[in-house]
């Protein structure tokens, strides 16, 4: 039996990569993917902890997180398309008309 801390460390690693990705990348879609990465990391730790704790609540939570991720994908990409339509670019650095 793999101890739960391995899973948790792994998910922490993945979570950090996700965060770093969000901070570094300029392309909106890649940023979105990094957020997906973070969500997956959380799912992983949820499931691991659910096994540790012994009840299924964790897995139900993961189920709902997936729902959210799907919704996010739909809305996110729709926004990126509508932005692309007027700003002709997906780079977040171009989206800085609103500042100050």
């Amino acid at each position: 039996m793999v101890p739960v801390t391995y899973y948790l460390t792994l998910s922490a690693l993945m979570f950090t990569l996700g965060i770093v990705g969000v901070v570094i990348r300029r392309n909106a879609i890649v940023v979105f993917m990094c957020i997906e990465l973070m969500l997956n990391a959380v799912n992983l730790s949820f499931v691991a902890l659910s096994r540790l704790v012994g009840n299924l609540d964790g897995q139900i939570a993961v189920f709902f997180v997936m729902v959210v991720a799907a919704a996010e994908a739909a809305v996110g990409l729709a926004i990126i398309i509508s932005l692309f339509r007027s700003a002709k670019s997906v780079e977040t650095s171009d989206a800085n008309q609103l500042n100050g």
Partner: peptide, 17 residues
């Protein structure tokens, strides 16, 4: 204080992090 509001999402994300 206003200068922190650069308008770049990247900067915001970094400050938040």
């Amino acid at each position: 204080a206003r200068s922190t509001q650069t308008g770049q999402v990247r900067h915001y994300a970094f400050f938040m992090f």
